[in-house]
Computed example of a mutant assay.
Amino acid sequence: METLSPRKGRGDGQEQDVEAVLDDLYTTPPPDFVARRETAAAVARTAGRAEDARRIHAARRPTLAAWAANLLLRSRTEESRAFLDLGLALREAYQTLDADGLKDLSAQRRHVVAALSRQAAELARDAGHPLSAPVQEDLETTLRAVLADPDAADQWADGRLVNALTPPSEFRPATAPAANRPRPGSRPAHPPAKRAVTDELAERRRAHEEQLARAKEAAEAAEQRLHEEHARRADADAELQRARERTEQARRRMSLAEEELRQARREHQQAESDQHGAEEHSRSAADSLARAERDARARAQDVRRKEAGPV
């Protein structure tokens, strides 16, 4: 049965701990997987949880495509649940030979696989591990397998994929044998047993139509959510660009201010040097003036003595 992680433990703390550790491991980027696994296993061994340590150590590192699929499941819970519902409806449509539903769901399949693949690629890029074209193709193949194969759906819903999944061959609904097909224009009889079968088929069809409607609604909700996420990402990118521009403007202003400060310091140093020179020149001039004044007074006194004559 397809269920979304997180899974419920047995009820004891240790079981929940090891399940949480394993869930975390399979959303850890593959380059960091082994180191985190060994650290978690060592912690379990130190705590005396040998079985937990064994389970953690036995965890296999996922491929990049499998990791992106696990990350999508855990990070986009609503969209992933809608995707699993779409797979159920699609497989039911093939089983009941509902041609109209098959056509609608096939279109939904292509649309939603592409949308979810883009979301997973964005999550991987945000986590620092952008997906190459071949990895992106493996991811889309995995998502198609989830829609087509209930076993693949169960594996993905568990959230611990190790490798990319491969979808089965294209659905091929069986056709009724020619001998059993009604002739054109004929009106087949409906004995009581056949009427009961007809009623059962009608009930199955009504149930399928309800399931189809829910799947379409879920797919539309997933697409709307995708558009909203794109809009939020665009707003965030625009805000980031504005912040970068403000940072660059502030940097330029700071550079200008720093250059002006350096120029002011140079001018201040020159002014101080000029001031020291002027002060030295002023002291020298003052000394010269004092000497000149003393000399002038001495000569004036000498003149006065000579004018007075000998006493």
Rank of each mutant, 00 (worst) to 15 (best):
S169D: 15
R91V: 05
S282H: 05
P310A: 14
L22V: 10
A264I: 08
A93M: 02
Q270F: 04
E239M: 02
E209K: 06
H227A: 11
A107R: 11
V135C: 10
G101D: 08
R205E: 01
A250R: 15
L64W: 01
L261A: 15
P182H: 14
A176T: 15
L123I: 02
Q211C: 04
Q275P: 00
A196V: 09
A243H: 11
A218G: 13
D199T: 03
Q119V: 12
H111F: 11
A40N: 08
D295T: 08
L105H: 07
D154Q: 14
H268I: 01
R61H: 01
G277Y: 06
E280F: 00
F171V: 02
Q155L: 12
M1I: 10
D52Y: 08
T247E: 15
V146G: 07
A286D: 02
L165T: 01
L116A: 04
T141M: 13
E203Q: 06
H208L: 13
K216A: 09
Q269L: 12
T77W: 04
R262L: 12
P134C: 11
A127V: 00
P191W: 07
D199F: 02
A82I: 03
P188Q: 09
P168H: 08
Q119N: 07
E38Y: 11
A193T: 06
Q270C: 06
T166N: 09
A41S: 09
P62M: 03
H129T: 11
P31W: 11
A115V: 15
Q14W: 09
T46N: 09
R305Q: 14
L73N: 14
F33E: 05
E272P: 00
V162Q: 11
D52E: 13
S117N: 07
R109M: 14
V113I: 13
Q275H: 08
A278C: 00
E279S: 01
G159R: 07
R172N: 15
R244I: 03
L143K: 02
Q119Y: 01
L256Y: 10
A179Q: 13
F171H: 07
A157K: 10
A20P: 03
A157C: 09
A59K: 02
S273T: 04
A35T: 11
A213I: 04
L22N: 10
G128N: 04
R10E: 02
S106G: 14
H208G: 05
R172G: 14
A234K: 11
E92T: 07
E170I: 05
E170D: 12
R118M: 13
D12S: 07
F171S: 12
D85P: 02
D32M: 12
H281A: 10
A42R: 09
V112S: 03
G128M: 08
P6S: 07
A174E: 13
D24A: 15
A40F: 05
T198C: 01
L71P: 02
A114R: 10
E260A: 14
A124K: 09
A124W: 06
A215S: 10
T175Q: 13
A250E: 15
E51M: 05
L226V: 04
H281C: 00
S5K: 07
R118H: 11
G185Q: 13
R265V: 06
L22K: 10
A285F: 06
A69V: 05
A193C: 00
A99C: 01
P177W: 10
R10S: 09
R49H: 15
P6G: 04
V34H: 10
I56K: 06
D32R: 13
